[in-house]
Simulated scan of single mutants.
Amino acid sequence: MTRKPRHLSPEERALWDRVAERTTPLHPTRPELPEALDPSARPKTPPKPPLKRFKVGQAVTATTPPHDLSPSIEDDVAKSPVAMDKKRFGKMKKGKLTPEARIDLHGLTLAQAHPALVRFVLESVADGRRLVLVITGKGKARESTGPIPERLGVLRHQVPHWLNLPPLSSHVLQITESHLKHGGRGAYYVYLRRAR
């Protein structure tokens, strides 16, 4: 609860002026405060426009944009350019290529999943694998109690970022959502570069 500012009465103002006349300023070269401290001298804020009439049962038109300003992870991964052979990419998206290895990150925390993913990808590169499957799960729907919206599936959103950061980014050629038979939205195909 905010308090309204208390203004000096005429008697209090006269008393203050008498006290101020008898004092010597600490910094005589500093300019004095303007008289704008007086509440009557302050600029007035423009009045707010009146609210439109509203009837009970009337349809409301949404005037605010949606709160989710960043693109979904599906859009972000889907919009990434194809860096591998387009024919092979098409087969991979249709689920016709079989992953050579897989890692399941279900039930792991972010702190546990990140080192496990790094170890898995680096071992896959060392073993000469090209296509691996990273299973993240779709995430559990839970009730949001706060004002900030929470994304569904923390690992599903974090894994593409980890794969695009060092030390994995130099080994990863392509990331895309897996086909339904390999997990659909709950898993990613990770196509690795050839070991040099």
Rank of each mutant, 00 (worst) to 15 (best):
L110M: 09
P99W: 00
E12R: 08
R13W: 05
V60Y: 02
P81N: 10
L26T: 12
T29Q: 15
F54H: 03
P46R: 11
G95T: 07
R6Y: 06
E21V: 09
T29A: 14
P99N: 09
K94C: 01
K86S: 14
D104I: 01
G57Q: 06
F54W: 08
D38A: 15
P5M: 09
K55I: 05
T64Q: 09
R30L: 15
L33P: 05
K48T: 13
A83E: 15
R30S: 12
K52E: 10
P49K: 14
E100A: 12
P81M: 06
A14L: 15
A78Y: 08
E35T: 13
A62K: 08
H7F: 14
L15D: 08
H106A: 04
K87E: 15
H106Q: 06
P47L: 10
T23C: 08
E11T: 13
M92E: 03
L110N: 07
T98F: 00
W16L: 14
R18I: 05
K86F: 05
P39D: 11
S9Y: 01
E21G: 03
D75W: 02
A41L: 15
A41D: 09
V56G: 02
W16K: 10
D38F: 07
R30Q: 13
Q112G: 02
L69A: 14
L37T: 06
H67C: 05
E100G: 01
G57M: 08
E21S: 08
K86P: 15
D75F: 00
V56A: 13
P43W: 02
K55T: 10
K55P: 00
K86G: 04
G95D: 05
K79L: 05
V56R: 14
I73M: 15
P71M: 04
R22F: 03
R6H: 08
S72I: 01
F54I: 09
L33S: 10
G107Y: 01
R18W: 02
H106D: 04
D75C: 02
A14C: 01
V77G: 04
G90E: 13
S40R: 15
M84K: 06
P34F: 06
P39R: 13
I103M: 00
A83Q: 15
L110V: 12
L8D: 08
P81H: 06
L33D: 12
G90H: 05
V60R: 03
K79T: 09
P81E: 13
S40Q: 15
P71L: 07
A41F: 07
P25C: 02
R18M: 11
P10M: 12
D104T: 00
P10K: 08
K52W: 00
H7L: 10
E100W: 00
D75S: 12
R102F: 00
Q112I: 01
W16C: 06
K93M: 11
G57S: 10
L15R: 12
A20K: 13
P47Y: 02
P39T: 11
S9M: 05
L26G: 04
R30E: 12
A62D: 04
R88N: 07
L51E: 10
S9L: 09
T61G: 03
R6K: 14
E74V: 12
K87R: 15
L51T: 09
T61W: 00
P81V: 09
D104P: 00
A14I: 08
A83C: 07
R30W: 14
P47F: 02
E74I: 09
L108T: 08
